[in-house]
Design a protein around this nucleic acid. Structure first.
Lengths: 345, 345
DNA sequence: TAAAAGCATGCAATCGTTCCCGAAAAAGGT
DNA sequence: ACCTTTTTCGGGAACGATTGCATGCTTTTA
């Protein structure tokens, strides 16, 4: 069942040379139809599977792709990986997943690791610590296929899949404004991440459009991406204790959003009565929250699929310099009651 | 930086033979200290990394482990994989993840796939469709390292990590009983899964202990594991429309729990006022639910870690027949208000 | 002084596959 | 009947690393 027959075994059994068997298996024109049939049938019978390791050694590729993300147990990434896996599986590629835990050092180690395994390409979402993208630049210049998704490196001219973060943040902020809030705080991530900056800009632009002044004390930057929930809790407390306390919070990432909600719950602050909340998250149970949460949702699964399709296309294209594709998808604003302005207030 | 120097390159550069270089690198006693130092220093300088593919071909192992789970985007499994990855990374193993989507056929394909990649061992959580475990038996009999976690194969004498499902279900059910409920429904999964049967038995035992008759019409089996939410919704509707309508529901898995909550929300049924809910889930936002959900939680991360440690130990042990370990961890019952019996009722 | 022992290193096989060459046999042309 | 072309197939190198065996040199010992 799981036996490993080799080309040599077949050759011996059939009294042929390994070269002949190999060629027959690969449908070479130089092999007679008769021999081909013989070999093919025997290969079928013993359930012959070429050894991918031997192939990798010879061909310098492995039919596998490496994935670099910060954290698996994060809805956005597990959904994206699901998308990645679905395409990769269909195309016969293996997926090797590594986590950076937001550490640059770990990110580099992972890339080295994957490369030494001769992955045929890389699917990368940068860690929040990463500012130096030169390793990717180096690889890309050497013609190595890389596709970024979500957290992309701007200075590298390779394919990228993102969402319109600006628009997503703008819409969410404007929703809060249209609900009647003017004092809107913002919980954001490290400035290293382009997505943080874009989302901040969206937030800012919505305020601008409605002639609301941006108060820097309303903007709290969680440089540790809310890894210990306490980081977020401290900021939330600060916001609530301000003289001019904000009426709403717009959060910029999955972890930040839930950490913020936890902090508010801990403090016994009612949503949206005392403070409204809207934020980026890909959790698929936010409708069950108390109150149902207004969210900006990214098409994670689809992003993973597109990224993988693009990567495999790059890998399999003959010419090394493929025109890089920049796909930008739309976020989805799901309006629920956490962003409501209650009338009796 | 990511150059691939080979042993040959070093040999050429130093005017030695590849064998000498190899032996020097591996600290063989037959190489003079002088030569060793020379080789080691040069290897360090060019950042030599042995080619794992060549090694795999020669040694018939790959320093990677295969993981078979049903679904990545499921809290339990993504947390478990996080645990797996954390240990594997430290021990220098790669993790190759595959999903079965609860299909037996896909499960077998995945195992074949992983085996052809020469993974050194397998970490398996069976799909709900799987009844025939003979492929694993076959592999195990051949001495191939396999460790099961969560959804285990009883008839194979290999290491297994589970939780005490009976106890977890018993405690949850008894909690509902102690809250004052007697009419307790049960949403369960395919009977193929041992965990479903164990949890059902726990439910039954708690009823027995408190002299409550088990009503078969209260037990709804979701054979598709609640994949389309509608499967669960239909059962929930049935339960609510019964003459002797249950006052509480105990759900047996992550997906079932959230699908049940969605169905209840859709129908506008108040929890716990009209019906109480408690269930297995590893979502880490259930405290934010409306109402906060009473849950049975599995130590997923730890299960992944232990399973991986055990697997690597088996892989690296010289003797093929290692005494299999059966670790059973405890679930955690987190009591929140979704299981409260409201007094004014 | 010659043989044995010790040491440092090289050769070549091996893992499974592909592919460049070369060669034998069959087919075709004159 | 002989030469050329085509068809069909095998030998062997290569991918990168390990390792048993062979080799050649120095040193020790009978």
């Amino acid at each position: 069942m799981f036996e490993n027959y080799t080309i040599k075994d077949i050759a011996k059994a059939l009294g042929l040379s390994t070269s002949t068997v190999s060629r027959a298996l690969n449908g070479s024109y130089e092999i007679s139809a008769e021999t081909k049939k013989l070999v093919l049938e025997h290969a079928e019978k013993v359930n012959y599977r070429p050894n991918p390791i031997a192939l990798s050694l010879k061909e310098h590729k492995s039919h596998s792709i490496g994935v670099v993300v910060c954290e698996l147990a994060n809805n956005f990434f597990s959904q994206a990986i699901n998308g990645i896996e679905s395409i990769a599986y269909d195309r016969g590629y293996h997926v090797i997943i590594t986590q950076t835990h937001e550490s640059f050092e770990r990110e580099i180690t992972n890339v080295e690791h994957l490369l030494s395994r001769h992955v045929d390409g890389l699917l990368v979402s940068l860690s929040s610590e990463t500012v130096d993208t030169s390793p990717y630049k180096y690889l890309h210049d050497k013609g190595f296929p890389i596709v970024f998704f979500d957290r992309v490196a701007t200075d590298i001219d390779t394919s990228k899949i993102t969402v319109n973060n600006f628009k997503g943040a703008f819409e969410a902020t404007e929703l809060l404004i249209n609900s009647g809030f003017t004092k809107i705080a913002h919980l954001t991530n490290s400035n290293n991440l382009l997505i943080s900056r874009e989302r901040f800009n969206g937030y800012k632009a919505a305020l601008d459009k409605h002639h609301i002044e941006l108060r820097s004390e309303y903007v709290k930057r969680c440089d540790q991406t809310g890894m210990p929930k306490s980081e977020v809790a401290a900021f939330v407390k600060e916001l609530l204790n301000m003289d001019n306390r904000p009426e709403a919070i717009f959060t910029t990432s999955d972890r930040l959003t839930t950490a913020c909600l936890y902090a508010l719950k801990q403090l016994g602050v009612k949503i949206p009565d005392e403070i409204a909340v809207a934020g980026f998250t890909n959790s698929d149970v936010t409708e069950l929250f108390d109150p149902p949460l207004t969210v900006v949702r990214q098409p994670a699964f689809q992003m993973g699929q597109i990224a993988t399709e693009l990567l495999i296309k790059t890998i399999e294209s003959k010419k090394p310099i493929e025109e890089p594709v920049n796909r930008q998808l739309d976020t989805e604003l799901v309006i629920r009651s956490s962003s409501d302005k209650l009338l009796y207030k």
